[in-house]
Design a protein around this nucleic acid. Sequence first.
DNA 1: AACGATACGGACCGACGGTCCGCTTTGCAA
DNA 2: TTGCAAAGCGGACCGTCGGTCCGTATCGTT
Lengths: 197, 197
Amino acid sequence: MTERKPRKDAARNRAAVLAAADALFVRCERPDDVTMADVAAAAGVGKGTLFRAFGDRTGLIKALYEARLEPIEEAVTAGPPPLGPGAPPPQRVLAVLDALLCFKLDNRRLALALESTGGDSPYGAAHYGRWHTLLRTMLEQVPGLADGDFAAHALLAAVRADLVEHLAGPQDVPRERMRAQLADFTGRVLGAAPAGT
Amino acid sequence: MTERKPRKDAARNRAAVLAAADALFVRCERPDDVTMADVAAAAGVGKGTLFRAFGDRTGLIKALYEARLEPIEEAVTAGPPPLGPGAPPPQRVLAVLDALLCFKLDNRRLALALESTGGDSPYGAAHYGRWHTLLRTMLEQVPGLADGDFAAHALLAAVRADLVEHLAGPQDVPRERMRAQLADFTGRVLGAAPAGT
DNA sequence: AACGATACGGACCGACGGTCCGCTTTGCAA
DNA sequence: TTGCAAAGCGGACCGTCGGTCCGTATCGTT
């Protein structure tokens, strides 16, 4: 309805901006020494173009983030178990959180940029709602868990970008160790009692 | 050694700034519509004074935060159990996290300001290290918990200011409910098997 | 009283996110 | 091919904010 196909140059510029921003975020130390002017310059584009295409800084970061995240969301909604649907809830929760952790490790700066976008919290972003709903739904199928809603929030908090950055960076915790730690922690939440049914 | 007693007006101004900033942070919607100029004006002081006393914005917020936090740290290090030393680790972990949650509920805007101080993450702040060490130490005495270090980080992440804000604000979760949720979640981490010894 | 040390305060600066508007490009249609 | 309106471009420009600087006022000591 309200769909209007963009002009060719607009599409090209949008892509150029995304690519440039991506590269800049990878190379930067802290996310906010990538300025909008930097991105525009690196993309060979005026600032006006950049802001028209993405609205504001947050919009640009969100667009980048969603683009990177898409394969994972695809794998979760339509891929094979244990990530995809069909796996028993506990295993799938483990798998989803692990995937999320790996994603943040692979996109540290970008995730950091998104979550530390001053002003609005990460909890306003659309994708957060999706992850939370998914986790909550699965957690509610775990017997004995009183409150899936809060548990979902808390588990997601365990893979927040700045925590991951803190551990992977200054603390120098290796990737596999972090994954194991997270899996252990999550396992406890899912039911520390190893016996069952 | 490097201690020099401050001049009387300096001390008075410092106090005025702290009080003014405190009031402004309580009344504000988002932490960054309290500007340094606002604080200076509200305190009846020039910007120069403000920056000389606290270094920068982060310094001011940290000073405020630590001041507010002091009673709780006191209660933890020297008060009666279960918050103070002497309580068995699981109960004390519960008590500490509950105290922390209540603190963030009572100081939402301030905590938010501190943790969203763009640039450096919350993990650089001194008090974070203190809480983490305390929790880790206690968690390591809980049997079956493989990694107290990560668990401590993850539990602290569950009471992060913006999560608390998200739940208490937009989601309108009542205080007591949040406390119960956190306690339940923490209990699971500590050992979901309620039976035992 | 007088004088050095200390602190004050607001004009000033540089940076950044975001806007505006005259000019260029695009793509449709005659 | 040419003409033309709409869509898009880009960089000068703006307001705001954190932070600095330095001439002036205050303190407290002798």
